[in-house]
Design a protein around this nucleic acid. Structure first.
Lengths: 330, 330
DNA sequence: GTGAAAGCGCTAACAA
DNA sequence: TTGTTAGCGCTTTCAC
């Protein structure tokens, strides 16, 4: 024990706290600090937590782990938590399950100091659950009524950017394979898509929009649906997410439609998958990792009283031009 | 407090422990339990941890988060930990960094009861660090001298299975793009590859082997190298991992070599990426998620004294035949 | 500026 | 079978 080494007792606590509010002689402080260092003293966080009712840990609730989007989010959150001296407890709840029991368990049993939540729960259940948990929370990429603290991606702007790229290439008949019906992300994508079209004076044709969800199969199905029903055929398509774009690509290949020769594709998010597709996919990168980072940092600010509210919308990063989009041939 | 509600005090502890070694009247036990339920009592794990010097948490150290292999591992570990009532603390250490400081921090500061380790540390540093940490540990997919507890994948057998598939299709000239030089995974792959060839009476030609590592670029480079130097050209190639196979595919496409028409490809691991490639990739699935699950379960057994050693090698799952391998044309 | 003492919520040893 | 007591390692009044 550092105390033993020095010569004092709980004064050590003050010295190690380093808090300027405790006035104490530089001499003793130095003595304690050096003794602590020499003995390799590590405070017992459990004891501290019990005493202060603060555990120095954050909980994160995610619906998927093997999706690069969540993996990146977690990676960012972990980095921010570590920088601030917090541990990160991770709970995976499945897409179908509710995160509410996880939230309950994290706060009531594990005594986390704050929550990062990214489950698919409807806001009507999520918001009360978070309010009921008496620790601060930040919701990731789900803007929801009744949820004050949230860090999300500006999906609308990203969508707009993607579609603008197609318009600049000269496309006028642009389809959109969007997300899950009813989701906020879907609304944002459609808004961005329509906004870009309007700015370019291109009319909106609902037959060019189909729900793909976020899976490859969904993308394949939606692409087929559009090919079947849209006349004349679109020369380009903006797809909700990378996986769905891969599915759309498959559908086009099956229909012997060349990409980007006959139809161009642009999508959102970026990962190694974009590079290994044939052709490599042109995408708008989104700062997913940074979203996790900012959310965790904001959460710590909330916990430590440096902030009263966390509400950030992160702008998309750059357009990554690969090979899936080209000018339409006359 | 449940105690208040019933009428007793620390007897509640015994009742809630449910331990059969404590003999007590069914009446009081029932009373305590029902009171606890009614009040929604949750024991304070922090206090318990302080008292018992057991935190009911596991730490997991991983070098990557956005690689499906690790994501699946974590997902499995999280499930097992939760089932057994443990929380999972996750630490990401980067491929270049050492996991040793993370191990140190997890045990000395966060007081985890056990460690799951999958960093890239050389065994000469990892083994002492784990021995020094005074909690049990299980190493994931890295067999290393001095490390007793380990759950790993039978990569050798998986490699053999992959190559056997090519042999059955009639291939005799089979190249191998392997992992990082010197890695255990690489040795296993080469051993499996050679084993399969030998069983089929096919000679081993070192010019057909090139190091690809585990990235797409590596695979692309290695494929080019083999195409340049191997005469006659192989009719099939067994690639170390999915991403590298994607890179190899790219190289073949660039060289206008048809897959599987001119060259067949088979690789290890499975994920959505295998499906979105063109052609979809034939792979040998490996139980990565289960590896995380078994490791965490074994670790808890170690912690709770139900096991003295955890050493499992998980057999590969089935061969998933997609479209990247076909019989060679005469 | 520093020491003494209490107590966070729990469990384990001992008494009753 | 149950209650009493002590103490895990820390922080925080409260004296001094």
């Amino acid at each position: 024990m550092a105390r033993r080494a020095g010569v004092d007792t709980s004064t050590a606590s003050r010295a190690l706290a380093g808090d300027a509010r405790h006035r104490m002689s530089e001499a003793t402080r130095a003595r304690v600090l050096s003794a602590a260092r020499k003995l390799g003293y590590r405070p017992n966080l459990l004891a501290r937590a019990l005493r202060t009712a603060r555990s120095n840990s954050l909980g994160i609730v995610v619906p998927q782990l093997d999706n690069p989007v969540y993996a990146q989010m977690i990676s960012g959150a972990e980095a921010a938590a570590r920088e601030r001296g917090y541990a990160l407890l991770i709970v995976h709840v499945g897409e179908a399950e509710s995160g509410v029991t996880a939230i309950e368990r994290l706060t009531r049993t594990n005594h986390v100091d704050g929550l990062l939540v990214s489950s698919f729960d409807h806001e009507s259940v999520l918001a009360p659950a978070l309010r009921h948990a008496k620790v601060p929370s930040v919701v990731l990429n789900r803007r929801a009524a009744g949820v004050a603290n949230c860090v999300s991606l500006d999906t609308r702007r990203a969508a707009r950017k993607a579609v603008a790229h197609l318009l600049e290439l000269g496309h006028r008949r642009i389809a959109h394979l969007t997300g899950r019906p009813g989701g906020a992300g879907t609304r944002d994508r459609i808004a961005g898509y329509r906004g870009a079209l309007e700015s370019a004076g291109v009319g909106f044709d609902p037959r060019l929009v189909a729900a793909a969800g976020f899976s490859a199969e969904g993308g394949e199905r939606a692409m087929r649906a559009v090919l079947r029903s849209a006349r004349p055929r679109p020369t380009a398509v903006f797809v909700a997410t990378l996986l769905a774009a891969a599915g759309a690509l498959k559908a086009l290949r099956a229909a012997r439609i060349a990409v980007p020769g006959d139809i161009s594709i642009v999508t959102l998010h970026d990962s190694i998958i974009a590079e290994v597709l044939d052709p490599p996919m042109t995408t708008v990168r989104l700062p997913t990792r940074r979203m996790g980072y900012e959310a965790a940092r904001g959460l710590v600010d909330l916990i430590e009283g440096r902030a009263r509210r966390v509400a950030r919308v992160l702008a998309p990063l750059e357009l990554v031009v690969r090979g899936s989009a080209a000018p339409p041939h006359a």
